[in-house]
């Protein structure tokens, strides 16, 4: 039932984007998130959108699949768009129909913010869709390594992240199973008053927590038994490998930033 949701999932593949080093991808996405805030006019927002679509096509992800999987988030974006249409009252009046007054500035702001939100979600989704959770954490750990000097527990954070990523699908499966079991006992999450619906979540959450704690305990014991002692002196099975493509990605990013500055409206 939750199987259509793709936010945070990984689909193996062999595209240019799939084969990139996780470090270049992480770096790129992080810098891209910052760069998105440079956009301030139609040209720059159009550029961001076009660039994102280009990345999607290079990663060979089907648009239908992407948007179908992000439906809940798209609803949120459309909601934001409508809020702006209705509540921003600046610029020329475009539509005046009974209570509804839509102004030019509202439409503009709404579209800008929606595009910003959309490209951020799409980029991060492309990152997780094309990079295995292990690669993401490996890349993260290496990138954050310099911060060890400031007593940041980098290895432990990376471990926590990889464990959480590892257990997301497991918890989803578990939720699905428990949901089915309670539905079979006549529980109903889709009808009734808000209060009834909230109460209907309890039979779902309690077993889920019980099993999550049990799993955590089992995992801790299994790690201890196999002699896990933290990051000190630990070697890696998979070595990260920076290649020409990764340098291309960074150059591409610089080109994007230059273009954004060039197209940006002055203020």
């Amino acid at each position: 039932m939750l199987e259509k949701m793709i936010f945070g999932r990984y689909v193996p593949g062999n595209s240019f984007v799939h084969r990139l080093d996780p470090r270049s991808k992480l770096l790129f996405v992080f810098l891209f998130i910052v760069a998105v805030f440079l956009a301030n006019n139609t040209a720059t927002y159009a550029l961001l959108l076009a660039f994102t679509l280009l990345v999607i096509s290079i990663a060979r992800i089907r648009l239908y699949f992407l948007f179908n999987g992000l439906k809940p988030i798209l609803f949120l974006i459309i909601f934001t768009l409508l809020m702006h249409f209705i509540f921003t009252k600046e610029g020329a009046l475009l539509i005046d129909w009974k209570f509804l007054k839509i102004y030019e500035e509202g439409v503009r702001q709404g579209i800008y913010i929606s595009i910003r939100f959309l490209v951020l979600v799409l980029m991060t989704t492309i990152l997780t869709l094309t990079t295995s959770p292990i690669s993401i954490t490996d890349g993260m750990e290496t990138l954050l390594n310099p911060l060890k000097r400031f007593k940041l527990p980098v290895h432990e954070l990376a471990l926590m992240m990889s464990i959480s990523l590892r257990f997301i699908p497991t918890l989803m499966d578990e939720t699905d199973k428990i949901l089915k079991a309670q539905l079979a006992r006549g529980s109903d999450l889709t009808s009734g008053t808000v209060k009834e619906r909230i109460r209907a979540v309890v039979p779902l959450l309690v077993p889920l927590f019980v099993s999550a704690f049990k799993r955590a305990e089992d995992l801790a014991i299994a790690m201890e038994v196999r002699g896990y002692r933290g990051g000190e002196g630990r070697t890696r099975y998979r070595q990260l490998d920076w290649q020409w493509r990764d340098t291309v990605v960074i150059i591409l990013f610089l080109v994007l930033v230059v273009a954004l500055f060039w197209l940006r409206g002055g203020n």
Binding site: K177, I178, K180, A181, A184, G186, P203, V206, P207
Partner: peptide
């Protein structure tokens, strides 16, 4: 209402 199902490891549904 008419078809009851006991799942594999049904004890996981207790709450």
């Amino acid at each position: 209402r008419h078809v009851g199902i006991v799942f594999q490891f049904p004890e996981h549904q207790l709450f």
